[in-house]
């Protein structure tokens, strides 16, 4: 069965999620400060697991955060970790977009990049 795309609209506390499995551009964008990050990221984590097992096309994922809290950071790392584990059978490319003045988000991107062995670009916009 083909993997369905996943769309979660943004709220004041959570980012917009747009994940596609057809090789198009996937994106998570906005603020992420839910108190219960597990609840919010569970469907994203699940989608990534399925993608890692079944996808036929590469995943091009843009991550652009104004801000995220520490527990969201933990789940972002988990998502990237899932992708990393299947990097030999799937193709991934992560773009971490951030404002050139946003030192905090640049640091966060650099940290994740250093922890994950998949193509990961920190792009200043």
């Amino acid at each position: 069965m083909e993997l369905q795309s996943l769309h979660i609209p943004a709220t004041t506390e959570t980012p917009e999620v747009n994940l596609v499995s057809d090789g198009g551009l996937s994106r998570i964008e906005g603020k992420s400060l839910p108190e219960n990050a597990f609840e919010f990221y569970e469907p994203v984590v699940l989608w990534m697991r399925q993608f890692a097992q079944r996808a036929k096309a590469p995943l091009i994922l843009e991550l652009k955060f104004d801000y995220f809290n520490s527990s969201s950071g933990r789940y972002l790392f988990e998502i990237l970790n899932i992708l990393e584990q299947s990097r030999h059978k799937q193709s991934y490319h992560i773009y971490w977009l951030c404002d050139k003045d946003d030192e905090l988000m640049i640091d966060k991107g650099e940290e994740l990049k250093s922890l994950i062995d998949i193509p990961f670009e920190v792009k200043l916009v």
Binding site: F38, N69, S70, S71, G73, R74, F77, E78, N81, E111, L115
Partner: peptide
């Protein structure tokens, strides 16, 4: 701590805060 948080499946309190 970030690395460990995924390994130990700690869902609520990652200790990162």
């Amino acid at each position: 701590t970030l690395r460990a948080s995924v390994r130990f499946e700690n869902k609520t309190n990652s200790g990162l805060g």
